[in-house]
Simulated scan of single mutants.
Amino acid sequence: MTKPSDSRVATHSAKSTRTALICVGVAFGMLGMSFAAVPLYDLFCKVTGFGGTPQIGTAATGKVLDRFISVRFDANVAPGLGWKFEAESPEISAQVGITQTVFYKVTNRSDRTVTGIATYNVTPEQSAAYFVKIQCFCFTEHTLKPGESFEAPVVFYIDPEIAQNRDLDGIKAITLSYTYFASKAGQPVAEDQAGTAKGDAKNPKL
């Protein structure tokens, strides 16, 4: 039986090493993509308004339209949190292009210290691309002792560019909806009535 030459053995070893490195690289690449998927999806939603995600801005454009749209403020609390959550006004008439400020109040009515975090969306979803938030309390953890309260503003405007979307000519009302969940490691967690964690509430439809 002919013994393989050293060169053939070396070539085979090099190919095996290269294949192993490629497999490791693919594995790490897939792992990195899985970690990046959520923030990339969140970024996509914020840029496009997809899924009812409002836009993020720093100031109104200065352009104002002679058009008013009712903005409704929905406030929800996940079961088990024990908080009271409400907007100072359930609805306002907002002039397109004008910056508006509305306050929400949160009170811990339970007998324990609780950390909560709010998620949000806008309906109808098509309008989210023109609903620009300047300041918001969403995705920020808040810890309240029993009976403790706090107020937080939402500052926003409706982008005048909405007038360029003929499909939204007939829109009369927009709903900004928040839901407070118990928070674990900075993520919203759905709970049952007894306060037992049921799993992450990732990007819920509110």
Rank of each mutant, 00 (worst) to 15 (best):
N121Q: 03
Y120P: 00
E148H: 10
D167V: 09
Q126R: 15
V122I: 12
D74Y: 02
L31H: 13
K3A: 06
A201V: 02
Y157R: 00
V47E: 14
P39M: 05
P4Y: 09
L40T: 08
F73L: 05
S5R: 13
Y178M: 06
H142T: 13
D111L: 14
S177D: 06
A60Y: 00
L21C: 07
A27P: 03
G51K: 07
N165P: 02
G195P: 03
R18F: 10
I117E: 00
W83S: 00
V77C: 00
T113A: 11
P39I: 14
V24G: 12
G147A: 06
A190K: 06
C136I: 07
A10N: 10
Q126T: 07
T123Q: 02
E125Q: 15
D74T: 04
V114K: 00
L21N: 09
A10G: 08
V96L: 08
P160K: 05
S183F: 01
T107R: 02
I98D: 13
L21Q: 12
A87W: 05
R8Y: 07
K198M: 08
F68E: 11
H12G: 14
Q135E: 15
K3G: 05
K172M: 12
N203A: 06
A10F: 15
A173T: 11
A201M: 04
F137R: 05
A27W: 05
T17A: 05
D42H: 09
S127V: 06
K205A: 04
N203P: 03
S89M: 13
E148Y: 11
L168F: 07
F68Y: 13
N108M: 08
A10S: 11
G29W: 12
